[in-house]
């Protein structure tokens, strides 16, 4: 058995909702240097021979969900610094050593995310935007080419306009946020939506500002021409990495 590290925090408590870790492992706290690490035991083999199933989506999805489940449960009442997936140590002593060595880095992240949540906002081009109304069948070859040209241009212009609007939405949300990140838009088949995603932003927002954020998203969606999707609150994964 080796030790899987989920998250680090100060004055952490284990969730009392029966949350368990990867493969149903029992959660424990490892205490060192004023920090607590949430860990559980995992089979060494599963992580050592990762080549065998790192592309196995069933395995990966289960580990990712378990990882996220633990981080979310612990992060419900406490500021936590979430670790990236699959950070494992040989034993608890090694975790203690890491807590000592990286104390400053953990503390910096915890200071940054304390009392704040991450919210995700995605913007999609609204269905039908930029589509020319169905026109009559062109009566000549030249008319057909003209119509196709207009249609192509309208499509390009619609995407360009949507991207500009996405920048505006991002800027408006940023005004409410302590920090922001823009992730690459997800592909359509991944989102399961036919419309193109033009914004995939993460916003670190004071907990007290959550209602303002919701209201702003609603306002932006009703006044603008993009469909917006709000997810969260998330444990601030996007803001736990190095300062940028």
């Amino acid at each position: 058995m080796i030790t899987y590290l989920y998250a680090v925090g100060r004055d952490l408590e284990l969730p009392d909702d029966g949350s368990r870790g990867i493969d149903g492992g029992e959660l424990r706290l490892v205490d060192e240097a004023g920090l607590q690490a949430v860990v559980s035991d995992v089979e060494r083999e599963a992580f050592e021979d990762l080549d065998e199933h790192r592309e196995d989506l069933t395995w990966l999805a289960a580990v990712a969900r378990a990882h996220h489940g633990v981080v979310a449960a612990v992060g419900r009442d406490h500021a936590v610094a979430p670790l990236s997936l699959a950070t494992v140590y040989l034993d608890d002593d090694r975790v203690r050593a890491v807590l000592r060595e990286s104390r400053e880095a953990f503390t910096a992240v915890l200071d940054r995310v304390e009392g704040r949540d991450e919210w995700g906002v995605k913007a999609y081009v609204r269905p039908g935007a930029g589509k020319a109304a169905a026109t009559d069948r062109p009566t000549s070859g030249a008319a057909y080419l003209r119509a196709r040209r207009e249609a192509l241009r309208a499509g390009d212009a619609a995407v360009a306009a949507a991207e500009r609007e996405a920048d505006e939405v991002d800027a408006a949300l940023a005004a409410l946020a302590v920090e922001t990140r823009r992730h690459p838009p997800q592909d359509r088949s991944l989102t399961g939506r036919a419309e193109q995603m033009v914004l995939n932003g993460a916003y670190l927002v004071e907990r007290a500002g959550a209602d303002d954020l919701r209201a702003l998203v609603e306002k932006l969606a009703s006044e603008g021409s993009l469909d917006l999707e709000l997810t969260g609150p998330w444990v601030p994964y996007s803001f736990a990495g190095g300062a940028t």
Binding site: R54, S84, Y89, L90, R94, S102, V109, G241
Partner: peptide, 16 residues
Amino acid sequence: VLDKGIVIAGDIQINL
């Protein structure tokens, strides 16, 4: 969880 969060070296090199 894959791309974000704190990245520190674990004892076992994981190449996801």
